[in-house]
Amino acid sequence: MVIKPSFGRRAFLVSNLIFLAFISFLCLMPIIHILAISFSSGSAAAAGKVALWPVEFTTAAYDNVFGKPEYVRAFGISIQRVVVGTALSMLLTIVTAYPLSKDRNTFRLRTVYAWIFVFTILFNGGLIPTYLTIKSLGLIDSLGALVFPMAINVFNVILLLNFYRNLPRELEDASRIDGAGHFSTLWKIYVPLSLPALATTGLFTMVGHWNSWFDGMLYMNHPENYPLQTFLQTVIIKMDFRFLKSENVELMLQLSDRTSRAAQIFVAAFPILIVYPFLQRFFIKGIVMGSVKE
């Protein structure tokens, strides 16, 4: 039997729908606005005529951005750090989480090790000592400075180890009886079964590397080595053009022009815009299951 909802209930449902649609639009609007500006003519953008649709449509800003070797090179460095950084990080997270997911009877020193890792969440040396360590290791101006310090993310290790723990124990027992050692149990049982958690941590690591800008600014002395976000930070936010080799003023003006700024922002956001909706169901599942403990 279906009871027809009361008037008050229907009024609530409709206004709730409108309210949430408005809220969602608020999250999307700034991106659309930037996209509209990037496809508008310079004069229309400067005059503030653009809202959510391009005025005097042109792709000049994009021609401009992709024509700049500095931008293209920074984009390449970001891709490099995402690929290398995520691969290294995932490998380390998978093997680190496994021993830590064992109970005390299987792995006597587990708690000691776990605290060594967790302590780094609670306390850190701070900005200056970390900077000087990287410097004395000779990592300045190398990809290592961007990839190694982020290689172990303890939060991801915890998420994965909690996920491992919720897998049925019988699976592991069975594989042990079949004579599999720890390495093959991890590789053949744990890894295939924890794909949602791996997709989650993998996504977060990729996004983290793509979005990271401060390390580039600290550890790269030569702007040719800047990843994209650091490059944008200097050009768009700080409007600092000293490092651009080319001396012509035109280049400077083009890069700081409103439409070009918008195009650079949109191109940098684009990889994320296409990746995250597809992984949404994984990360929700991964977060929820990784955080449930018995």
Partner: peptide, 27 residues
């Protein structure tokens, strides 16, 4: 029985010692 588990932790430990614990001595 447990050596493979210690071995697995080795690379991760090396990274946090170098990039988290050594900077702590910098305080």
């Amino acid at each position: 029985k447990e050596w493979p588990l210690h071995l697995m932790l080795l690379p991760g430990l090396a990274f946090i010692i170098i990039f988290s614990y050594i900077p702590m001595s910098g305080i």
